[in-house]
Design a protein around this nucleic acid. Structure first.
Lengths: 211, 211
DNA sequence: AGCGCAATACCACTTTCGTGGTATTCTCGC
DNA sequence: GCGAGAATACCACGAAAGTGGTATTGCGCT
């Protein structure tokens, strides 16, 4: 069993020292370095050669999330576990987008923290089930709460599908057995309802998933 | 502590009986009903008034995923936990889209199954960390595995961003401090590399995530 | 019976996009 | 130092997309 090299990025002295002690107390784990802020971590983490990084989400200066976004680019093989007390969906989602693979709340018992590290190292994504729920809720929300789409008639939504696939007006007319002028009219109406004036804008608005 | 009412939808007789016995063996849990297929569950589950449903993903006839999609509409307050041996990303994602909140693999020990039920009942999303990883990878996948994008030069990728946001050539030219003709040229090159001939096609090809 | 809405259709006009050329400058690697 | 590739720039032409009208048909609701 390979020893897992861990680094801790945490501004709170007591917590940081506690984590370091915890990690070093067990065979199979070593705390390669600790940093009190994101900036230090960014310049120095290369030397630590970490498998797993525990990153506090609240750091002075550069936030933990942004720190991970930055580090993930430079060291994509390291697994980043966010540590936080907050569980609001925004924060979780931003951290995941940034490249974090795990999410620990501060109330997690020491034993579970070590489990989480192992887990992340072995290709898992440690997180408690309440956080998991928020993540998947976020998922399920994507295609549903499209108040924008509901404004469109069935036919308009159908045509929007073709728009999304890149069909030309001419092609849609052929496929739908209607005149190109009608296609044009439908699309014009779609744009009006969505308050846009180009195909790409319409698609971005209709399938507003990114962000 | 309220008793959790559970139903089991599972075609394999032995597994179904095992689960039923397991659930009834513990105080605080009761197996309100079991069904051998999706169709039976759909017509009869209303009477069971279940808090949690364990649903096999492989059912004869209507699949477990489709079954959940159907049931979730009718009984949105029930928590659906998928049971499966498969862990491929597609299946996981489809089940989540359908409205499942948890995901158990068949190898899960009995004790953990009961934990998962409790978890789902209490608003969590039970799943092992490897499944969690797949879920969040799916999240992060948007901008990563794009072999197509690597063909493009840095400048071209930059311009692709603007294309995606729906900017006109004129606007891009202004923002990038280059002539509209250069913008046109870059985009032409992008289309050539991606072998497409319209903005929408280029975007679909470049960000081919939504299948 | 009459109203509203969705779907259909046509026209005229402007703007934007996509295609096919050519050409210059700069940088990077060999 | 020379060639390849990238970024810049310009032109001309045709195709596609978007704008702003008007008009007819049919369906459902009151």
């Amino acid at each position: 069993m390979k020893t897992i090299r861990v680094v801790v990025i945490e501004d709170h002295d007591q917590t940081r020292q506690m984590l370091e002690a915890l990690i070093n107390s067990r065979s199979g784990y070593v705390c390669a370095a600790t940093y009190a802020n994101a900036e230090d971590a960014i310049v120095a983490i290369g030397a630590a050669n970490a498998h797993v990084a525990l990153v506090d989400i609240h750091l002075p200066g550069l936030s933990g999330t942004k720190c991970v976004a930055r580090l993930k680019k430079q060291y994509p093989d390291t697994q980043y576990i966010m540590c936080t007390s907050l569980e609001d969906s925004e924060t979780i989602f931003e951290a995941l987008q940034a490249g974090a693979t795990g999410y620990l709340t501060k109330s997690t018992e020491p034993e579970k923290i070590l489990d989480a590290i192992t887990d992340a190292f072995n290709g898992g994504s440690p997180m408690n089930s309440h956080i998991a729920r928020k993540v998947i809720t976020y998922f399920q929300n994507k295609p549903s709460p499209n108040s924008e789409l509901n404004k469109l008639s069935v036919r308009e939504q159908e045509i929007l599908q073709y728009l999304a696939k890149g069909y030309r007006y001419k092609e849609m007319a052929g496929l739908l057995f209607i005149s190109i002028e009608t296609v044009r009219k439908h699309i014009h109406n779609i744009y009006e309802k969505l308050q846009v004036n180009s195909r790409t804008d319409a698609l971005n608005k209709a399938y507003a998933s990114t962000k």
